[in-house]
Design a binder for these strands. Structure first.
Lengths: 354, 354
DNA sequence: TGCTGAATTTATAACGTTTTAAATGGCCAG
DNA sequence: CTGGCCATTTAAAACGTTATAAATTCAGCA
């Protein structure tokens, strides 16, 4: 069927003989169609006849064609790249890996690639973002450690550059985010401590810069106010502190008067460090004190099952962020559809004693 | 200085007025040079006069020019991308994040970007590698979990595609790698247990598939043979096992006869799980048994300081891998220069009692 | 017959870079 | 002068794709 009646291109040029990746031209030569037609057919343009579309697609599969990303990018200006700002000092167990696995899962089957943009490259995070947008290095951005007045969010919103944050802001212009409901987590966790008979829970909160720290604190405060019990927000340390620092601080606190009798920990490392610090003081978990913690891996529950935990699935979070970002890039303008607040799944055991 | 005596290009076309990123053409128009000359000047070609090179570079800086990666990639075939095969189920604390931070650090300042290629995308790792090379999606590849006869290494070697592995193989054709000397680690760790008076160390080794498991075992065996003491290689679990499984297995083992009196653990999770399992049996670390473990984060030493540890710096490893890969891509053909065996730093305390 | 419009296909020009081969101008030997 | 050689600069083509505008075919209809 494929005849050679068509006059050759100006010259012999490379022709399909050039050993290498098949291109649109290869398909064009095989089918006798023009390159343009092949391009359109593959993108399922309605102006190309159904029969042609089918034929082209078959040939493409047969010879293992896959479009050249560089050429597409050059022509369209779209990079087909999603960037994730990696923070090197995440104290949360498996944070980076889980989030990335999740994003990658969402991107699977799409034309998008995931590229890691460490933000220690440039001095501040904002500068990194500036650089990325200025040089059009990605079509969308994902990042975490969101601050209430996050300058990155401001910048990207102004530029109209697609992004999703892990965590909310308090900025007036709404933007896509995926967040864990840390208020509910903290509220339920603290209530659980009180339900167990504890009368002075202590909170080890996130670094004050970040929005989620406020949510943790709010949930905690709501629970203690409802119960009308004493409380404490442990100063000097936060969830970013190294385990050793948390341990020391807990021990030191117990050398002082009127110590707390239970802990609300936002992370596993924090819980483990707290237990060690308490153990240094001769206190036993479940007897002299209790802990409820957020769980992001399977370590804590295997090592210290007495710690009651509420799970946050970071891989799922990553997947959600990927999906949301793709929708945003795809033109979804209803921001409310791009804001996900993931509900903590409270273990049934929590309800029984509460 | 910049005069308009030069005839305009065929038409007014976009000209530099087109609001957007500056390109070579922008610089050409400013300086009055040809695009080719500008390109050459920026790449420091010796055929361009020194004065011109300097002038071009100055203008480029001034207007904030940075080359379009897509265009470069299209023209040269080089992607300026380094791919890292991410394994979603790394039980080693902070593995993914550390390695990536390290690689990113090595890539900083170069034209290379780091892109994450999760290998659950395609069925097997080899298929992922196949896909990546076939579609020229990167200039080099980094991956871990190396097997003695790793099929990925085979494939990439055959293709002449640049790569570095984290871990060695037993293949006859040498290839670039960065590896931790797990033999020495295991040997020293085990000797330390024996020096502390233990007479039946147990090894919890890596998954049998991976090369490093053999190294761990070899070091362990060398130490126990030298001492002529009893030993055990704990079956049914390995460093990839979830903490809960390790804990259960340890407990179960102690219900049987003739249990070990010490443990060589290749990871922190493993050590913590072991301690918990032993504690379930009423046994106390440092009294009834000892543990030496490999440390990759600061968690273990803060939580369980009685566990003696030898540190493996994964960020440094990532950085080394990045550097080695760049050298390989840069044309370094002396493979011996591209093989790094990182020495465990044995704590001074180890020597004292040994 | 010739015109109109719909359906399908096509040629051409771009995107920004690098590569190849050629041009320009200055200088010196013949 | 002519020719040749050097140093420097240049024009044109190419990489593989898509967007724009134009061409081709064919049916329907006046």
């Amino acid at each position: 069927m494929a005849d050679h009646s068509k006059p050759a291109h100006t010259e012999d040029s490379g022709s399909a003989a050039r050993r290498g990746k098949p291109t649109l031209r290869t398909i064009a030569e095989i089918t006798g169609l023009a390159v343009t037609t092949v391009s359109r057919a593959l993108s399922d343009a309605p102006q190309i006849s159904l029969e042609t579309r089918k034929r082209v697609r078959e040939i493409a599969n047969e010879i293992g064609y896959s479009p050249d990303r560089a050429a597409q990018r050059l022509k369209t200006g779209r990079t087909n790249v999603i960037g994730v700002l990696l923070d090197p000092h995440e104290e949360i167990l498996g944070y980076g890996t889980s989030i990335m696995s999740g994003i990658a899962k969402a991107l699977q089957g799409t034309a998008y690639h995931l590229i890691v943009m460490p933000n220690f490259l440039n001095k501040t995070n904002v500068e990194a973002v500036h650089y990325i947008t200025r040089n059009a290095m990605a079509d969308g951005l994902i990042f975490s450690r969101t601050e209430p007045l996050d300058p990155r969010v401001r910048l990207l919103s102004d530029l109209g550059f697609p992004f999703v944050t892990h965590g909310r802001t308090e900025l007036s212009t709404p933007h896509p985010y995926v967040d864990y409901d840390n208020f509910t987590f903290s509220y339920q966790a603290t209530k659980r401590l009180i339900a167990k008979g504890r009368r002075k829970p202590a909170l080890i909160s996130g670094p004050a810069d970040f929005t989620f720290a406020g949510h943790l604190q709010h949930g905690f405060m709501t629970a203690v106010r409802e119960a009308g019990c004493a409380y404490e927000i442990l100063s000097g340390i936060d969830l970013d502190s190294p385990a050793g620092a948390i341990r020391d601080r807990v021990r030191q606190r117990y050398a002082e008067s009127d110590p707390p009798d239970s802990f609300m920990c936002g992370g596993e490392v924090c819980a483990l460090a707290t237990i060690t610090g308490m153990s240094d003081c001769g206190l036993t978990l479940g007897r002299e004190y209790d802990i409820v913690a957020k769980q992001t891996s399977h370590l804590l529950s295997a090592i210290q099952p007495q710690v009651e935990t509420i799970y946050e699935d970071l891989t799922a979070t990553g997947e959600d962020m990927g999906r949301v970002l793709l929708q945003k890039i795809g033109g979804e303008s209803d921001v409310s559809k791009l804001q996900l607040l993931l509900c903590p799944q409270i273990p049934s055991s929590f309800g029984m004693a509460g």
